[in-house]
Design a protein around this nucleic acid. Sequence first.
DNA 1: GTCTATATAGGGATAGAC
DNA 2: GTCTATCCCTATATAGAC
Lengths: 181, 181
Amino acid sequence: MSREKTIAKLIGVFRQYGYEGTTLSRLSKATGLGRASLYHYFPRGKEEMAAAVLEYVNRWFETTVLASLRTSDNPSQRLRVMCQNINEFYSQGQETCLLNIMSFGEANDLFHASIQQALKTWIDQLAKVLVEAGIEPEVARHKAEDAVIQIQGVLVLVRAFDDIAPFERVLANLPEKLLDD
Amino acid sequence: MSREKTIAKLIGVFRQYGYEGTTLSRLSKATGLGRASLYHYFPRGKEEMAAAVLEYVNRWFETTVLASLRTSDNPSQRLRVMCQNINEFYSQGQETCLLNIMSFGEANDLFHASIQQALKTWIDQLAKVLVEAGIEPEVARHKAEDAVIQIQGVLVLVRAFDDIAPFERVLANLPEKLLDD
DNA sequence: GTCTATATAGGGATAGAC
DNA sequence: GTCTATCCCTATATAGAC
């Protein structure tokens, strides 16, 4: 099994249990590999696996969600496509955001810079699209923040209520909310 | 030391590390009590401590934030006071929300009902105020959800950026956003 | 590359002295 | 009520066979 394939199988464990709740047993079970085999791919153990997962997910987010903000479509259309990709990225709201769960406890110490970077990039690129749409830079920045805030917040709600309806509603309203004033 | 005082000292540990990241060593250090002493107050151990913390925090939230929604002030004023209390409750955005961090992993299995109940109560009482303010019930419910979504979301952002500015901004705009349309 | 076996530390929990 | 001492289990990590 390749390292990449292994990482893909590790993601779900970190997303569900967080860094401290993720054990080598759970990782071993998820991959079908013994503990020692995991150390073959990730010599520095759990920390390296978490870092690899975070990097993998950030790259995946970049090439799907963020890429949709850089097409030649008009701003409105780009935002709509981004929302479609967000919907897929979070499996219709059923998946947690790794950036949220990794910002607690020990994981926060280890990956704070990486988490910050990922959210900053998202906001920056969103704001850029809004500026292109004719919105004042400062307002655009706030609106971009608000978009990320709403995504993060609604994922918490969905988890608590086992109901993806709020997620769908937020995503459906997001493009017009960002462009209207 | 009383059980109540002990619970108050346990809160910070669960808020920072989450359920699985919270160890008896950390709880012992935070309270100044030995492990065995903690078992005197909480015979069922960590699980009982987490449950006690969750209940304590929910009661605290109820008597500060939610109580401000039931005064004789007009709706607009009640929402403003709620935001002030939210600001205090989360220490100007510097404290995580226990409901978020406890909705992961094993803790989610144990406390899912309690978390759901707490968020539902918050949204219900908020929606009620908005209906009093003349907003259609269905719209009021969505707006109330949006308020909670924004609080939860902005707390994630604050943690990532070590910057409470977005928290202040969201809170400042919340009352008018809820009432305007 | 994957395994079994194992080392070492820390986890949660309990017994019993004071 | 708080402590020390201890139990058992699981955690991470490593060694070395295949």
